[in-house]
Design a protein around this nucleic acid. Sequence first.
DNA 1: CATGGCACTTGATGTAGGTTAAGAAATGAT
DNA 2: ATCATTTCTTAACCTACATCAAGTGCCATG
Lengths: 194, 194
Amino acid sequence: MPFDLLLNNVSKYIHLDDTEREIFISHLQPKQIKRKQLTLNEGEICKNSIFVTDGCLRGFTVDKNGVEHVLSFAPPGWWMADMYSLISQKPGILNIEALEDTEAIILSKINQEKLYHEVPKFERFFRILTENSLVANQQRIVDNMSLTAEERYSIFCKRYPTLIDHLPQKQIASYIGVTPEFFSRMRSGLLRKS
Amino acid sequence: MPFDLLLNNVSKYIHLDDTEREIFISHLQPKQIKRKQLTLNEGEICKNSIFVTDGCLRGFTVDKNGVEHVLSFAPPGWWMADMYSLISQKPGILNIEALEDTEAIILSKINQEKLYHEVPKFERFFRILTENSLVANQQRIVDNMSLTAEERYSIFCKRYPTLIDHLPQKQIASYIGVTPEFFSRMRSGLLRKS
DNA sequence: CATGGCACTTGATGTAGGTTAAGAAATGAT
DNA sequence: ATCATTTCTTAACCTACATCAAGTGCCATG
């Protein structure tokens, strides 16, 4: 079942009976994204939520100097979208790119709205999802303000142990908020210590 | 009517008939908070959402060096809570303090849950609120990573023009993410320019 | 099997913003 | 009004990180 991972994710927060599950699945559609392919460009209106089942996506912005800033990674079991654009249906600031060949499940904004009407429980589900990412973002703001790059890296390692191995260092550096050069130096410093 | 500002806020997102309005109001209770009084301490479990009708609150954390970091201000018309703690009902990290004598309306977590059952529309209302603050937090992460302190200050001025005047500079400095000393220097630099 | 790009490293130097300290100005309590 | 406390300013010095530049290893595509 290609939807197992997603149904599992949903059932953590709300219980679905068979009919509801069928309705939910009828609104979904699978999608393949090739490595390096952009599935959303900044300036576009985000029309989908993406649930990753295999591979990995990253969401990033590009600042006025052309520097990329990674806002989030989505390994299997995670959702990805430009929340600002998805909510407001205005042109967004996020680029979404596959870091490797990726399999995902799409829930379009339109179908999401339908779902809210057909199975109101999903209001609760997505509220909880949103709450969780709000909390994560808030924690990240605090971390960025009060911790050194080294401490943020160490937190990243603990929080996403699976990601560290198969993610290019420059992507982690960007997420942490430092240049690849400094990140490299930092790591060799840490290695020397231990 | 002391609840006018709040009812106005709600009606931006969902429409309430008279009965629903009555139910809503029955779950609310007014509260006064004196200047410098803490209405939530880190380590406590957050049991309330607070809607400010007069005065101003700030939410902040204290890092391991004892430095405070302001996460948000709540002038009249804004909600305040430790979202992490409110959602998870675990001990939180946020302190909430009144910057001046403040009048507010309390919606307890318990009443909020009741409200979800009695008037399910409120699931939508609070989902939208959460979405909005998620978006704001995300923007703040991007700003912190890609802008200078001066640019962040200029954004703050545009976004919260009413706050600049009657907020102590050190609070703004903390929100921007710089020391009061640097903030002071920055400002006198800006004045000299114009 | 060349080669051209990309990720990573390492070094020298530059800078935004922090720290410490001390005085001035504003604000609040009595 | 006056004293005490907190806030703001200014200055000298310091550090975490950025920038620029050059070099190494690594696959991927012809």
